[in-house]
Design a protein around this nucleic acid. Structure first.
Lengths: 96, 96
DNA sequence: TAACTATTTAACTAAATGGTTAATTAGTCA
DNA sequence: TGACTAATTAACCATTTAGTTAAATAGTTA
């Protein structure tokens, strides 16, 4: 779980996760969104994978990455609970 | 806000925040909970302060630290919202 | 002032992080 | 097989991180 928080501390990786929230994307598609070399991106993928925040799947030539939403969810819920911030908590509270 | 996520990525700092959740504590009191030198702790305090996650207040000889809960709250809510994890989110959620 | 306590700052170090370019692996297709 | 595409791994580098010990700062108190 510690890997998860470290993985989340980098803005590039958070952005990658947000992109994956929409749908699976190939390494190349993801890389297109950043001003950074492919190898650098690949290392970020590795970090995200070792934190289990994403999975990968080869499809022919490409490797597709997808978000493990539940892992992210549990990490954030874990923090929320550790600080008694559960359920409510937005600035202008719970408007149903 | 980026400083906040970086600050949260370290387990020692997360623990410090948890200790401060209960009540304000002096630098020394906090340090007693960790197997680490005072200067090392002091640096963690500095990181937490520059992320605005804690405030500090001198009282005579000692410096008391306290949690800025709202900053932590907003950071976590920000992540939650970025990933559409708001409101619900327990393991066995509400499947419509 | 001098001694004492609490904490930070300074100077240093080893390891981790985040990036680069060059080389390699894996798969497709003529 | 050979050429091509997609992505990773290897080797390297500069900066940041998280710790150390020694010195400095700030406040209290005799």
């Amino acid at each position: 779980m510690n890997d998860v928080y470290r993985a989340l501390s980098d803005p590039t990786r958070r952005k990658i996760l947000e992109l994956l929230k929409v749908r699976e994307k190939s390494a190349g598609e993801l890389a297109d969104h950043f001003d950074m070399s492919k190898p650098a991106m690949s290392k970020h993928f590795t970090v995200l994978k070792s934190a289990d925040l994403v999975y990968s799947r080869r499809e022919g030539n490409q490797i597709y990455y997808g978000l493990n939403l539940s892992v992210l969810q549990e990490a954030l819920m874990g923090l929320m609970q550790a600080f008694d911030l559960g359920k409510s908590g937005s600035k202008d509270s719970e408007n149903s």
